[in-house]
């Protein structure tokens, strides 16, 4: 089953063609980072405008790279992210997907963006391969920080989440404090390699909730440090970046390791924009090796938002969820399902 996936929940306009939730025939991502960077974050109206401008060329390109034409011959279904995300951005993808499905007379499948990230470790695996289950997935991005136990591709349980800021949000805020620009993740990751991660003892994980995360205290600690010591020079910035990143990675890794041991998992995966971060990738790989878990660290382009994961999730959920009606809309506050 060949699915054209469409993703427009935030600041990437993406389309991809995926067969049976695994074989990626094409994946096109048009990022809007440069448009939002001057504002220090994603501006919803700018995102909405860019999505409309880019949606047709991006879909055309995804079809072309998959050897398909705009007449949709060979496409068995269209899938789109219905939430969570920015409503004005989501509506572009949902409108496009419904229109294509209607025009081509194929089903339109609605996908939860987070379930898209959870489907990523199953991409590019052979029909009998794929991660050993149960799989523990750490999903970290600008909008989400989640630890999820995946029993099968369509059965999972959220173990923990952030009680305040998402990890990626903390990166953006700290980058702004250090005047490093937006987005914060890649630039802090780069700068941290030249700094001393033990230079400053920033606070780590919260202890009373076994699998929950908190990053607002850490962010405040960095802000206080900058206020007390003045605007840092390059070396001091590198030390702050390294120490901050060590605190984030420690918190994420520690809870992942505890959860994995407690629950007897067979494999571990990471996803989301912060999973493109070198320090986190190295740490999770090290933990997996030490614990004897299979480790699934996707290529960076499949950690950040993309449409291949949306097409994959649509395939896994196709027999559980009814296709979208012509009157379907987006749900900006969509959440992951409760088990059962």
């Amino acid at each position: 089953m060949r699915i054209l996936g469409i993703e427009t929940s935030c600041d990437e306009t993406a389309a991809a063609v995926v067969v049976d939730g695994r074989v990626i025939e094409s994946s096109v991502v048009s990022t809007q980072i440069a448009l939002h960077a001057p504002f220090g974050g994603v501006v919803p109206e700018i995102a909405g405008r860019a999505h409309v401008e880019r949606i047709v060329p991006v879909i055309r390109e995804a079809l072309r790279l998959a050897g398909l034409g705009p007449d949709g011959a060979g496409v068995d279904a269209v899938a789109c992210t219905v939430g969570p995300g920015l409503i004005g951005a989501l509506l572009v993808g949902v409108s496009a997907a419904k229109s294509l499905a209607w025009s081509w007379n194929v089903p339109c499948l609605g996908v939860n963006h987070l379930e898209g990230h959870l489907a990523s470790p199953f991409l590019e695996a052979g029909p009998d391969a794929g991660p050993e289950l149960p799989l523990l997935t750490l999903l970290v991005s600008g909008g989400h920080t989640l630890l999820v136990l995946v029993r099968t591709p369509t059965s999972y349980e959220v173990l923990g989440s952030t009680i305040d800021d998402a990890a990626g949000e903390a990166y953006d805020k700290v980058a702004r404090l250090l005047k490093l620009g937006y987005p914060g993740g890649p630039v802090i990751d780069r700068l941290a390699t030249t700094g001393n991660p033990r230079a400053i003892a920033f606070p780590r994980a919260i202890r009373d909730r076994p699998y929950d995360f908190s990053f607002s205290g850490l962010k405040t600690a960095v802000a206080n440090h900058v206020r007390t010591n003045g605007v840092p020079d390059e070396d001091a910035s590198a030390d702050i970046a390294a120490s901050f990143q060590a605190a984030v990675v420690d918190a994420l890794a520690e809870k992942t390791q505890v959860a994995g041991r407690t629950l007897g998992i067979r494999s571990v995966a990471i996803g989301g924009g912060v999973a493109a971060n070198a320090a986190l990738r190295e740490r999770i790989a090290a933990i997996g090796a030490a614990e004897g878990w299979q480790v699934h660290i996707p290529d960076r382009s499949f950690c950040t938002d993309n449409a291949a994961m949306i097409a994959a999730a649509a395939w896994w959920w196709r027999q559980v969820d009814a296709p979208l009606g012509l009157d379907a809309s987006a749900d900006p506050n969509l959440r992951l399902r409760r088990p059962g």
Binding site: G48, R49, V52, V56, P70, S99, S103
Partner: peptide, 20 residues
């Protein structure tokens, strides 16, 4: 209305692309 316009225009251009 910005959001309304985007829904209508996205629908129009994607139908147009799909049906040539």
């Amino acid at each position: 209305m910005f959001t309304g316009l985007r829904v209508g225009v996205t629908t129009a251009i994607t139908v147009a692309m799909a049906l040539d």
